[in-house]
Design a protein around this nucleic acid. Structure first.
Lengths: 214, 214
DNA sequence: AAGAATCTGTTCCAAATTTCACAAATTCCA
DNA sequence: TGGAATTTGTGAAATTTGGAACAGATTCTT
């Protein structure tokens, strides 16, 4: 599935994820066809926003009818590149790492954590959720052996850069960094920062702002 | 701390959180003063972006000098409203809920989970991380008693709306929804959705995109 | 079968956001 | 002390994003 346009806004990608979520709900409820208007309402966005977001990737609707729910889900998934499984490496098996390893939703959504790595000798060899923790030095071998493409960093902040270096050296294509630290990567590596405190900060700011106003 | 401007972009709030993170790193390294240029580089943004983001809230720098690191951290925290503690209620003590309850970083960052709620009779009374799980029906009483302001939803998706209703009825001011479901709230309630699969989708999309190009 | 009704895809315009560029303020150094 | 070197804060330009409006395609109705 090719994209029609050169650059696609980050915000569009984020919304597509929301559309999938809501469309899946529609599907469960037994709705077969949905208009951009109805989908827009459920997603709290403008309906032309939806049509425009989809237009980046192709024409998925039928004029006068709307979008076939299942078909649209499939199209969006293909557009995002999540119509197949992605093999992931998790580096740093602390509290957060363990929580992610236990989180069943990952494999359900097609992100399969196939390797758990740590450089702590006390952790190496331990089995978490049926997966043996392996020394980070084995990353190059394992990345090749298992076809790992996405690296997930869940180390303490001070070890995030080293984890990234291991992953990059091992030939990973993208990194999702849960550690609260900025890291440097070559520009051909796709990097995403995950920090849910951002959401708490935003909430605090807006609530506080409400208070200030009156 | 009053804001100088009416509306502040969501993206600015997100970046301020990043600035704090990087500034804290500078502080640990012993750097006392930093220029917008240097901070910008560490955050991978434009330096006037930083100056403009800060200008929404006030004048924190010294011309010809830069910003005093500690002072700027304090100013940003005050601007965001995180210069004080926020009492939180967590609803839904499943895998994710337990992981968050165990996550020490919350109280370190000033978001203190003071109540854990669930409507499963088997869970009620259980103690997690020193906190007793309480029936969701007790939310109104507990919100008043403990001064809870932010609700954190970590239920399965089908119970997210009910959790939200309980929280809203109990007088909470903001909701952070970790459940993969859209929820409806009155507009005076601030609502944030957290879904880290968004980041995985974005990574998948960009990696796949790279592949497509050559 | 033709006209009304519906709903997408897209163009055009407005609003918001980012970046540039420079005046104003401060420090450094001779 | 005065002029060079910095570096912020900000107005204006450039870019990006979002929304309104409408032509084009499809279905419904009589």
């Amino acid at each position: 599935m090719a994209v029609k346009s050169e650059h696609i806004p980050k915000a569009t990608i984020a919304r597509l994820a929301t559309y999938i979520q809501v469309l899946s709900e529609f599907k469960r409820e037994g709705t077969d066809v949905v208009s951009s208007e109805r989908l827009a309402e459920a997603c709290s966005v403008n309906s032309s926003q939806i049509r425009k977001d989809l237009a980046y990737f192709g024409e998925f609707g039928v004029r006068g009818v709307g979008y076939y729910v299942q078909e649209l889900i499939t199209s969006i998934k293909r557009s995002l590149g999540i119509d197949r499984a992605w093999n992931c490496a998790l580096v740093g098996v602390g509290n957060l790492g363990r929580a992610l390893l236990r989180h069943r939703e990952f494999s359900r959504k097609g992100f399969i954590i196939r390797g758990a790595f740590d450089c702590d000798p006390y952790k190496i060899g331990e089995v978490v959720e049926g997966m043996e923790i392996v020394c980070s030095r084995q990353l190059p071998a394992k990345v090749k052996e298992l076809g790992l493409e996405i690296g997930v960093i869940t180390t303490p902040p001070e070890r995030a850069q080293r984890a990234a270096n291991y992953l990059i050296g091992a030939g990973i294509k993208g990194i999702i960094n849960f550690a609260p630290a900025r890291i440097a990567v070559p520009k051909h590596i796709h990097l995403e920062y995950v920090d849910f405190f951002h959401y708490f900060y935003a909430a605090a700011f807006h609530i506080r702002f409400d208070d200030t106003r009156d």
